[in-house]
């Protein structure tokens, strides 16, 4: 069974909740699809069982010995990324236009490494994650490969994925084929809009949806609006997590929130996970 935790945007407490759920069960498989802010793994020590290079696209390289500095490449490049055979890598989109016009075949496209993919044995189950290079970002392809890397370990276990933010290709790749999603939202002006967008997305993929309002008490009015929205759209509101200073402490101490017995957020998350499990495993 795989549960993917997502939110329309960053900073809603998605990772804290994903970690909490991952820790409530034993030996869960964990996948960190939030590759632009890969914080899931910070909670764990462990040994990297495998590491592989990931290539997210192509960039041009110029063979200096063949280049005759004719300048045809810069006329063809729409991104001002090459000048007389000298490439500005941060600007190059790897379109290959320069390669087509280069008279001496000095320019060619090469796969470019944009991330490392790790499968880590945390001692409490497997975690797959990526480290993305600067100027690159999560892509559907990277997420697909991350999930594939974890796949051999998932049999008979619960997999908890920290999903990608947004509504683009990465998040679609993090939810296709998952059994359920938990959408974490906040009662803020933008939170409500983001929720609507991810719900539409998940609906189209016919995935079982749970919603959770984090910091539910910071704006009662918007929280009520979100609850009404869930009712109207027939969405299961699985949890209402109160604002809780302990959450920040838990992040600082890198100890999942479920280990703070006095924390109201902890209590709410445990309750929520029970609700989710009941719904998923009801038959």
């Amino acid at each position: 069974m795989e549960l993917t935790v997502i939110s329309g945007k960053g900073g809603t407490g998605k990772t804290s909740i994903a970690v909490a759920i991952a820790e409530l069960e034993r030996n869960t498989v964990k996948v960190d699809c939030d590759v632009d802010a890969p914080n899931f793994y910070l909670y764990y020590d462990g040994n990297d069982a495998s590491c592989e290079d990931f290539s997210g696209g192509k960039k041009v390289v110029v063979d200096e010995e063949l280049c005759i500095s004719c300048g045809l490449c810069q006329d063809a490049c729409q991104f001002s990324a090459i000048e007389n055979g000298l490439v500005d890598f941060l600007n190059c989109e790897g379109c290959g236009a320069c390669v087509l016009v280069c008279p001496t075949q000095a320019a060619s496209l090469k796969e470019e490494k944009t991330a490392d993919i790790f499968v880590t044995d945390t001692g409490k189950g497997i975690l797959s994650r990526a480290e993305v290079e600067i100027g690159s970002e999560g892509s559907g392809k990277l997420i697909t490969i991350l999930r594939k890397a974890a796949k051999p370990y998932t049999d008979g276990k619960i997999t908890v994925s920290d999903g990608s933010p947004g509504i683009g290709c990465p998040v679609i790749s993090s939810i296709t084929g998952t059994d359920a999603v938990l959408i974490v939202t906040e009662p803020t002006q933008s939170g409500m809009e983001d929720l609507g967008r991810v719900v539409t997305l998940c609906r189209q993929f016919k995935i079982l949806i749970f919603v959770c309002i984090n910091k539910v008490d910071i704006n009662k009015q918007i929280s009520t609006e979100i609850e009404e929205y869930c009712l109207e759209k027939n969405l299961l509101l699985a949890g209402r997590i109160p604002y809780d200073d302990t959450v920040l402490r838990s992040i600082n101490e890198l100890k999942p929130i479920i280990f703070y017995s006095e924390s109201p957020a902890n209590e709410a998350i445990r309750q929520m996970w029970k609700t989710i499990k009941k719904e998923i495993f009801k038959d």
């Binding site: 892509s139 559907g140 683009g168 990465p170 993929f205």
Partner: peptide, 12 residues
Amino acid sequence: AGPSHMGMGSGK
């Protein structure tokens, strides 16, 4: 069909 996500997000 499922939803269009053509070109949403980073497109990369």
